[in-house]
Design a protein around this nucleic acid. Sequence first.
DNA 1: CAGCATCCTCGGCGATACTG
DNA 2: CAGTATCGCCGAGGATGCTG
Lengths: 151, 151
Amino acid sequence: MIDLDGIDPGLQAGVTALAAEMRAQGYQRSDPVREIPALLGDRWTTLILLVLDIGCWRHAELRRVLGRLGAEGRISQRVLTLKLRTLERDGLVRRLSTADVPPKVSYELNDLGRSLVGESRRLIDWVQGNAARIAAAREAFDRQRTPSALS
Amino acid sequence: MIDLDGIDPGLQAGVTALAAEMRAQGYQRSDPVREIPALLGDRWTTLILLVLDIGCWRHAELRRVLGRLGAEGRISQRVLTLKLRTLERDGLVRRLSTADVPPKVSYELNDLGRSLVGESRRLIDWVQGNAARIAAAREAFDRQRTPSALS
DNA sequence: CAGCATCCTCGGCGATACTG
DNA sequence: CAGTATCGCCGAGGATGCTG
């Protein structure tokens, strides 16, 4: 079903297994792999989830705090609304609003969202734990590529 | 240092703690949070790592296999080279080449790369495990937004 | 075969102005 | 205050052609 031509039989077996693994459970043809960039691959979502993990935030407050944390600059009002809407649609975030004018809208994580935060924290920990190794690898790579003064 | 104006004191404490957590270890001012989209946030890297976890691949073979797995279409030669170069620079992948013409180039994971694959597999498992929940949330959300026939 | 240069497309994101 | 609409930028990624 995957049709591998002149490829090492050992590797072929691995690919078949990987394909089966990817088709498992709820996903039939598409791969859950592509959900990962969709969930955490953008500039803001991971950080938003971390802040929401602290508690319940009003839209404007959340926006201010996101602007201070990290060196990302400020998130635009439009994009924050978009990100929160996506998170709400995916069932990770609850939106609470009053019918006042001006309206008061708050956002908080639900159980599924907290569960995802747990996973992404593991990734962050991995990055922190291996930051030195990665930085060293990058330096070595760049040094070799830049002859600089190799006289 | 983060300067929070009219924000609930309880939340303020949480933000301060989060900021400290983000500054911890190797990262001094920048946040490891932004490394996550950089590492796994693009269309191909996660899938490339999974395939490299199977074994050692020639460039062209790898490209063919990536095209078959998932419903992403084929990766362009240029982008595959770019992604592999980045992974090599980050110290996750080893590049093996001969000086022949035409050249034979192979790529394989090293220990750090295998370690990252382990983490990303956890994320994939999370997505698979919660796929039904997410799909249900999306359906409910969309149904409510599309009045369809609400007469 | 693998890499690089060039050109092009598309989507994410920011900025601004307006509305309930 | 929160959301929407509009505009514009920029970078990721695809397609093609050439080289060692």
